[in-house]
Each structure stands twice: as structure tokens, then as C-alpha cells.
Amino acid sequence: MTNSEQKSKLLARWLRHRPDAIGLELDRSGWTDVSDLLVKSAGAGISITRDELLQLVAGNDKQRFSLSEDGTRIRAAQGHSVDVDLKMTVRTPPPVLYHGTVEKFIASIRRQGLLPGTRRDVHLSATKQTAEEVGARRGSPVVLIVETFPLLRDGYQFRRSDNGVWLIPNVPPKYLRFPNK
């Protein structure tokens, strides 16, 4: 793992799950001051320059981070386990979304559906390829298909993050299509 990848993983950890690990404070919408982040990360022994931070944000293939328009604040785009309100509006998704996982979770998903685990929402992808990449992080990927229109009909609401990830609190099993094996 490169130094940049390590720093990106730490940023995700601090901005999504553990701001307290370096004494960082997130506002209600998940934002924190860039200068405060740089000072606190240096205090934790992780030196990140402003230019490095901008490069980490711009170069992140999953666009995990958002900068404010004036560049003075930063937040994670989604995936939080801490209580924040990203102020994402409810949106109508495409007819089908995808979820990447691995075989060892399939039996549980068949029983309980998709649950957010430690996150606040279940993450869904607009493309099968993205779901395969997500699942592949933990082994041989299994891609589930999520039927969105029945969910909408039954009162579920979807939101989409700045980086294109579709979010929903949970997906019961009856709305899922499993691969034939």
C-alpha cells in the first residue's frame, strides 16, 4: 500500500467513523475545517500538506471526499457511522441497482436482506461493474440485483451521494434477486 493510499484510508476513517481519534470535530453536516484537519493529523503523527490533501480528494477513484466550494472545509461523501446529516435529497433511482458482497454473507442476506451494519445506510451501485469491484475487496464477488420500483411503491426512499452511491436504510430480501448458482 502506498503512502497516499494509507493517508486516504486514514482520512476516510477520521471523516466517516472516528473523528475523535485525532480530536477532530465534525459539524452536523459532516464538515470540518481543512486547516484543523491538517493540524490534528500532524499532531497524530500523520503529516499531510494542503496540496497532498487536495490531491487525495481529486485522485480518489471512488470520490470519497467532498471539499466545500471555497476549499476551506472537507467531509466524507457517504459511509458514515457517526451521526451526521449530509442533507441529501430523496431521488428516484434507476429501475435496478446492484450490491456487491461475497458468498459468506449470502445466507444471512437471504434471511435478513441488506442491512447497513456499522454504517447508517446500505450502499448500492448504479452499475454491475462497480458492485463487482466492491465485492472483490473481500474475496470473490457476488452481485445482487435490487428491484427499486417495488421498494418505491412500498414507501422506501433513496438518496444519492455526491459520488453517485445510492443509499437506503435497508433492503428486505423480497426486493433482491440473487445470482443463479
Results as ranks from 00 to 15, higher is better:
S4W: 11
L37S: 05
N60P: 04
H123Q: 04
G30T: 06
G139L: 15
V84T: 14
L151V: 02
I74G: 05
F105C: 12
E147T: 02
P172Y: 08
G155M: 00
W14L: 13
Q63S: 15
I22D: 14
R153H: 02
P150L: 12
H123V: 01
R138L: 10
R13C: 10
V102P: 10
G45Q: 13
P94N: 00
R177Y: 00
S29C: 00
D85Y: 02
G45W: 10
E5M: 04
D83S: 05
D70H: 03
D121I: 01
D20E: 06
F149K: 05
S125H: 08
R75F: 10
I168S: 05
F105D: 08
R159Q: 13
P150F: 00
D20T: 04
K174Q: 06
Q63A: 10
L54D: 09
P94W: 03
A58C: 01
A131L: 13
L151H: 08
L144R: 13
K181V: 15
R64I: 12
A77T: 07
S47E: 09
D85F: 02
A42T: 11
P173C: 10
D154T: 01
M1Y: 07
P19N: 06
E132L: 01
A12P: 03
G100Q: 07
A107G: 12
D85P: 02
R111T: 11
F105T: 06
V96N: 04
R137V: 12
G139D: 06
N3S: 11
P172G: 07
A136V: 09
R153D: 00
T148I: 06
S68R: 08
S47R: 14
P116F: 04
T130K: 08
G59Y: 14
R13H: 09
G139R: 12
K87A: 01
K40D: 02
K40N: 06
T92Q: 10
Q55S: 06
E25N: 09
V146I: 15
R159V: 13
P169Y: 06
E132C: 03
D61S: 13
H80W: 12
A58Q: 08
T89I: 10
G45V: 13
E69T: 11
Q78L: 08
A77K: 05
G100W: 14
W14E: 07
T118P: 01
L97R: 08
K174V: 03
K87Q: 05
S35E: 12
F158A: 03
R16A: 09
L26V: 14
P173E: 00
M1C: 13
V171I: 13
T101W: 08
T32R: 03
Q78P: 01
E147I: 02
N3W: 13
T32K: 00
V39N: 02
P150N: 13
L86V: 06
M88R: 13
S47D: 11
A107H: 10
K40M: 09
I22Q: 13
G113E: 12
G59M: 05
P94Q: 00
R73Q: 11
W14A: 10
L24C: 09
Y156C: 03
L167S: 06
K128W: 13
T130A: 15
A58N: 05
G43A: 10
E132K: 03
G79P: 00
V96T: 04
